[in-house]
């Protein structure tokens, strides 16, 4: 099945696309997945890239916890591409393979770390109920502070946006596999 929207040949980039692509590749090492399509609107690509990088580099939410949130949102929405793009980074950041496998299989992980447990509970509650109880919110603030809670919940929101975009264009994983059943 060919892609709904093929990547633009870099030789044909407009100046705006060249600038956006350089920023994206500089921060991520490549231009792929949603960014190949966002590039059709270079300003959108630029701001969406910045938003993702700012969240990934949060001062208050460790990369390990960030990747846990990303995988949890991808699982809830069955976003195949973003799962495959993040699973390696999650392992590198120190998320336990058992935790990753449990999320993939829709089981609640047996967490060894409090920050992971709180982040997972916040994310699953938002994904399941589309709201957040005061009790869970209070746990988030106790664990991550107000600033960290802003970053955490914004990460849930950002990957909701990314997932909707990927599903609109039915972006497949690099190998075409479907890691999320």
């Amino acid at each position: 099945m060919p892609a709904r929207v093929p990547p633009i040949d870099p030789a044909r980039y407009t100046p705006d696309q060249q600038r956006a692509a350089a920023q994206i590749a500089g921060a991520r090492g490549n231009v792929r997945g949603p960014f190949t399509i966002w590039l059709r609107n270079p300003k959108l690509a630029e701001h969406a890239n910045q938003l993702g990088i700012i969240l990934r580099e949060s001062r208050y939410v460790e990369r390990r916890v960030f990747e846990l949130v990303v995988l949890t949102v991808c699982r809830a929405n069955s976003v195949q591409y973003a799962w495959s793009a993040h699973v390696g980074a999650a392992e590198t950041a120190g998320l336990a393979p058992e935790v990753i496998a449990a999320i993939r299989d829709n089981r609640r992980p047996d967490f060894k770390r409090d920050d992971e447990r709180v982040a997972y509970d916040v994310t699953t509650e938002i994904m399941q109920t589309r709201e957040l109880s005061q009790a869970t919110y209070d746990r988030a603030v106790a664990q991550f502070g107000v600033e960290g809670t802003v970053d955490l919940i914004s990460t849930v929101g950002y990957y909701n946006m990314v997932g909707i975009f990927l599903k609109s264009f039915d972006v497949s994983t690099p190998t075409g596999d479907r890691p999320l059943k």
Binding site: I126, L132, G157, F165, F169
Partner: peptide, 17 residues
């Protein structure tokens, strides 16, 4: 579709807080 995504992100933040 980007607008649908953007307001999903905004709604996530609004409801989270």
């Amino acid at each position: 579709v980007a607008t649908a995504g953007l307001y999903s992100m905004i709604s996530t933040v609004l409801n989270g807080f």
